[in-house]
């Protein structure tokens, strides 16, 4: 058990309250291990970002966490539930243990504060007794980690390029040496060359510092390279989870297969690019049975009435792979 860092159990997140509530994440269970990169993939509206914001309780109104547990195992062997924390505890916990890098590098930095201020205020909030000198030194060190020269400390966000801003965000995420970094589409807004550079910096830092990553993207081919394990989300649920090589080689769920055919592979076997017909389901009116069946090329009668459970498919040795699809009955 000692190598589990973060466990999400039965997490359900919804928008709104009462009769108008729309469930965007339904009963999701995921485990993040020490030093691991867990990829979270799905189309927009699949609930992957809602999951990330919901588990950290950063989801803006009208989002609410309906139920479940988000367990974090600290270094001292203690287990805390993020969903049961009071405000002050949550504030202490944030960034110190779980840091985030958001989608829009453009908007993640406060436009009216210098880079140094934004790097240093998080240190000050968590270590109020630290000296201004030591904070400044740490900020300089952090920029060096992501290959940005120290003279950028006094810059304002608008003076930096998109790639540099995202590097600053990564540096900021590492400021308190968290055990988990959640990244929501961290490279989407950047061009391919910059995207590559940032990913390699990230891989190298992870090697060096040993934090775990939850990496959220719609680009499955990116994950195949960067993630250790991948969870595929559809309609607010996890529909398949597997080691990234397995998932990449033999996707079991027709949706995973469709996602893989939506992006050109960076390496490995060539696939015919076909994409997935139709569009993601409307969360307010989810189809009965398997949410994917209206778009599924291999849908059967059963798919329309009964929702398949997530479980280890029969014939698979070990328990490191799960899928929710009637094509692959679970043990």
């Amino acid at each position: 058990m000692s190598d589990r860092v973060l466990e999400i159990r039965g997490l359900t997140v919804q928008y709104g309250l009462g009769a108008d509530a729309v469930q965007a994440v339904r009963d999701v269970t995921l485990t993040l291990h020490r030093g691991e990169v867990l990829g979270l993939a799905g189309e927009s509206g699949s609930g992957k970002s809602t999951l990330a914001y919901g588990m950290t309780r950063l989801l803006p109104p009208p989002g609410v966490v309906r139920g479940g547990e988000v367990l974090f195992h600290t270094d001292d062997g203690e287990t805390v539930d993020v969903l049961r924390m009071r405000d002050a505890e949550l504030r202490r916990f944030r960034w110190a243990e779980v840091a985030l890098v958001f989608q829009g590098a453009m908007n993640s930095l406060n436009p009216v504060q210098r880079v140094s201020t934004q790097l240093m205020d998080v240190i000050k909030a968590h270590a109020p007794r630290s000296s201004a000198m030591s904070r400044k030194a740490r900020a300089r060190e952090l920029l060096a980690l992501v290959n940005i020269s120290a003279d950028r400390l006094d810059s304002y966000p608008h003076q930096l390029s998109g790639g540099m801003r995202q590097r600053v965000m990564i540096a900021m995420a590492l400021a308190l040496e968290p055990r988990v970094v959640i990244m929501d589409e961290p490279t989407t807004a950047l061009d391919v060359v910059v995207q590559r550079q940032i990913l390699s910096t990230l891989a190298e830092l992870r090697e060096r510092l040993g934090f775990s990553v939850v990496f959220i993207t719609h680009d499955l081919s990116l994950l195949a390279e960067f993630a250790d394990r991948i969870a595929i989300m559809y309609g607010g649920r996890v529909v398949e989870e597997a080691a990234s090589a397995d998932l990449y080689r033999t996707p079991l769920h027709p949706y995973s297969d469709g996602l893989l055919r939506s992006f050109p592979a960076l390496k490995g076997p060539r696939r015919e690019l076909s994409g997935i017909p139709g569009s993601p389901p409307d969360l307010r009116a989810m189809p009965a049975g398997c949410a994917f069946h209206p778009r599924c090329p291999r849908a059967m009668d059963r798919c329309g009435d009964h929702s398949p459970e997530l479980g280890v498919p029969t014939g698979h040795a070990g328990d490191d792979r799960t899928v929710a699809c009637w094509l692959h009955p679970v043990v």
Binding site: F93, F102, V122
Partner: peptide, 22 residues
């Protein structure tokens, strides 16, 4: 609802700091 305010919350800054400085 701007991203940088969410980031400020995620950083665990004090309520006052997020409200005023961000």
């Amino acid at each position: 609802s701007e991203d940088y305010v969410t980031v400020a919350h995620a950083k665990g800054l004090s309520e006052r700091r997020v409200m005023v400085a961000y």
